[in-house]
Design a protein around this nucleic acid. Sequence first.
DNA 1: ATTAGCACTCCTTGAAAGAGAGTGCTAAGA
DNA 2: TCTTAGCACTCTCTTTCAAGGAGTGCTAAT
Lengths: 346, 346
Amino acid sequence: MAELTERQQTILLLITRDYIDTAQPVGSKRLAEHYRLDLSSATIRNEMAALTEMGYLRQPHTSAGRVPTEEGYRFFVGQMVQQAELPEAIQHTISHQFYQARADVDQWMTLAASILAHQSQGVSVVTAPHAETVRFKHVELISTQGRQVLMVMVLAGGEVSQQILTLAEPVSQERLSQTTARLNGLLAGLALDAIAALPARSDALDQDILTLIVADIRRIGESTSGQIYTDGQTNLLAEPEFSESDGARRALRLFEERSTLKDLLARTSANSNVGGLQVLIGSEGGWEELRQCSMVLARYGVPGLATGTLGVLGPMRMSYARTIPTVRYVADLLSDMVNDTIGGND
Amino acid sequence: MAELTERQQTILLLITRDYIDTAQPVGSKRLAEHYRLDLSSATIRNEMAALTEMGYLRQPHTSAGRVPTEEGYRFFVGQMVQQAELPEAIQHTISHQFYQARADVDQWMTLAASILAHQSQGVSVVTAPHAETVRFKHVELISTQGRQVLMVMVLAGGEVSQQILTLAEPVSQERLSQTTARLNGLLAGLALDAIAALPARSDALDQDILTLIVADIRRIGESTSGQIYTDGQTNLLAEPEFSESDGARRALRLFEERSTLKDLLARTSANSNVGGLQVLIGSEGGWEELRQCSMVLARYGVPGLATGTLGVLGPMRMSYARTIPTVRYVADLLSDMVNDTIGGND
DNA sequence: ATTAGCACTCCTTGAAAGAGAGTGCTAAGA
DNA sequence: TCTTAGCACTCTCTTTCAAGGAGTGCTAAT
């Protein structure tokens, strides 16, 4: 693609910004009048024709103004992704909210999702921290009814899993506690492979629990992410480009199907590092349903120990200037919190 | 409201059923032709006029067919609520799915939400089981980083809470384990009041943890329900009556705001017992945003120990014949599961 | 290189007309 | 007394047409 002159860049950026604000195709006259360009509409028209030729702009129809193409948005985002900073006042508000939620791990994610959705006016998605290689930390067995036992297992990344085990015969809480103590000693810090390689236990109860633990760790290890939290789905419905067609419904449907969503996040965040930011515009992500949408994604957490993904889905016309710094800031904040609690000396 | 003759009932029921199927106002001619009524359209017109007069039907405009009013739907539901049964094949499918998910408590709710949404083509909502009076069952302290401790507490109803505690100084896992053992012995089976009335502990660490436990139990006890799961939000967007206006957006917005949703569920389910079923039609629930919607709600669980709410939100025109028995069946199934695992001998 | 002018295209809006659906009413029939 | 055929009436929905407007691309002049 050919070089853009300084003036062409200015015009492209202005058109994109104006369109993001108004959702209306922007014409040469409007541009000449509203912004201090010191150019006539005719000149602007010429430049617009050039930008259209180069694939940065398009016309919905012959007698309409111009609208950015995916390529146009990409240029726009490229210009802003380095510089954009969140206003300090907002930073403070957000970090204060997280400070108040610091004690409750579940609340981290719901809060992050809520903040992202509100700030960006889009649909937010946040996955709980998840370890690439799951390691055992602690197990607890709690007798409930006769043969039913509630197993609560904590993994090294802080993930907690509850499972219900039905035993062949009733077992006292006392015996459960002994089993718990034995297994905690035996398994502390081990990964799945090491646990699976352990010799069979002589005690039948021990063996039953051990089998369940292995199955459970395997299940968690195989999933590509922690639990998914989202918020702001109705924001997408308020966007004018989605009010008529069912584009919003199809996009939200994709988001509702958790397995698809995990797939999407896993695929797109595979090649992105903690601290990095990824902006997927339109068809870039490869999902047909999201052709009219964009996503701003980031990874957070402690690499190697526990990481998660978070981001925002919005119309391609979303306010990147607002969304990008917010996603970055929240990701950094969550990384800090993960690091403080489960990072460090393991 | 005056009595309805046999024939008027039949006509009202047919109109309602037809409208639920087609989403089109139904006229006298259509009714006479499609159903074996052995009546002319003129006679039907007279009856329809009477039903309109009595408030069971209304006309969107002068030259349109009739549509049920809220009162009309209420009569329709009243006729069907006792008899409706879920086909055996579907019962088997559902109970099989629950059987496969029996070990994973989280999955109970997601599965229930998924099944309800699919079967009813509406928006489902399921709350996790929650005890009216929260009782302590078990606590576990896990050291993570120096001064950070992850506390996992299990309550009598099976609820699990994770909290992070920042200590004044680092404490060894060994000492944490001793504290855990002491507190578990001390608090077993106690409710909030009893715990709060306990004398202060001499050991500073014990006291810190105890304070946190009290605060956490109070927080959980004050909330009116367990965690909320929902599914099928996009189903509402597919309904023809919502495709244009933003009625769906406003209804979903209410559903997205978790605190409002809890409020709604708490208020409406307060006067309904486990096993009972509640159908709220249109403005009946008192929520302006749900004026065009209906809800089918049920409570499940073990009264006095742990109960939850589950239900479906749909357009007023929803398929009650399908939704009502599904909600009832899933509620019964969940009640059984709760009873099996945490019910009985406490 | 820039700009004023102008013809052209295409969308949008509003009015008018016709078609269609359904009703209420009246009068005749069982 | 209940039912039914017939009919005029009302209202919506769709189509058509014309006018208005916005924005463009091109050309010629600066």
